[in-house]
Design a protein around this nucleic acid. Structure first.
Lengths: 192, 192
DNA sequence: TCAGCCTATTCAATTTGTTGAGTAGGTGTC
DNA sequence: GACACCTACTCAACAAATTGAATAGGCTGA
């Protein structure tokens, strides 16, 4: 039930097309929720049916016509009341962790490569987060921004996302060290 | 497709019933994947059909008979080859982050309460992780364990889970500070 | 000029995940 | 001795997510 509210929350930033949202909710970009384009188009359809968002067609030059969605009054109310409801406890669901859990029955070299790829992905995401951060701060210092800005939600979720990716990076480095040490120890014990 | 492999990975620890796995995959406990009991029973049924796990009935005294599952040779092979496949990039999906993203249109006091609850949840999870850690280390030091233990996968995923909850705790504290400062600033600006 | 990518969306099929109820005996407690 | 809770599972229905393909014009570079 959260995609619904994630979409409404995204529309707090202003009106957007399904395509715009698809970019925002892309797994490589998203900092508070992710979804595929298909999910978004369907959800927007439903939200429009419930009149939580309004839709209008915007013709463009040199581009396909798009449908632009905006929060309605009742959409805003729905979002406000959602913020007060208890969140369902979220737990880990990361493919890579399953692979690491099973690491000892698999191929160490292959796993090492996957961990390196994840680290690279995290670095890319951190770079994007940093750009978003600068856009939000817009020259102001963090403390000043957090005290005075009209909306701090997006910044606070960004901080969470950034911390998550930094932690990912540290963890990847740790895993690689451990794997390397074990390889070395194994090489010394079973020389061939 | 990952629940399948998460279940296989869990069975690396030894045979287990659906009920045992349900406890392990509980959202409040899981450190590498979570799932509901219903999902697990269905998945185990499928895995047994594919002969990736074997099932046998175990009668107990004073308790209902249980069905205990164990990895088969081909299950182990499937898991090993899974560890080499690229993981799908996982992105955030946390209800609380959506609420924080939309915080500025909601009720600050209500949100503060939710953040405090999340912090309490994280503290509980950290305590459970710490117990699991001690059980894994079994008196050995971390460095020694990581160099010599037969399986390090479970420990490495545990480290990731622990770092995640610690980060959660720090972030919750930060959010609460920001909210309090803004409340104070608002109180000073609009005294009534 | 042709391939490949970008905008912008839709349809259909399948797989996953969630929710609620139901069965059935045993244990603990006030 | 009534009520709640624990073990251990099953069935059914529904909602959400994923995957793959299709449409269709414009734009970019070799």
């Amino acid at each position: 039930m959260s995609l619904k509210h994630a979409v409404l929350a995204a529309l707090l930033e202003g009106e957007a097309s399904g395509y715009d949202l698809a970019k925002l909710f892309d797994a490589a970009v998203a900092n508070f929720w992710s979804a595929t384009p298909q999910q978004l188009y369907r959800e927007l359809e439903r939200l429009a049916d419930e009149e939580l968002v309004s839709a209008r067609l915007v013709a463009q030059e040199r581009r396909p016509t798009k449908r632009v969605f905006a929060l309605t009054e009742s959409g805003l109310r729905a979002l406000a009341s959602f913020t007060g409801e208890p969140p369902r406890p979220t737990a880990v669901r990361d493919d890579l962790l399953v692979k690491i859990q099973a690491l000892d029955c698999g191929d160490p070299a292959g796993v090492r490569e996957l961990v390196e790829e994840r680290a690279a992905f995290s670095r890319g995401k951190l770079a994007r987060y940093e750009r978003l951060r600068e856009r939000l701060l817009d020259g102001r210092g963090e403390e000043e921004y957090l005290r005075r800005a009209e909306r701090v939600g997006p910044y606070l979720t960004l901080l969470r996302g950034r911390a998550f990716e930094e932690e990912n990076l540290r963890w990847c480095a740790r895993v690689l060290t451990v794997l390397a040490e074990r390889e070395a120890a194994r090489g010394a014990a079973e020389p061939r």
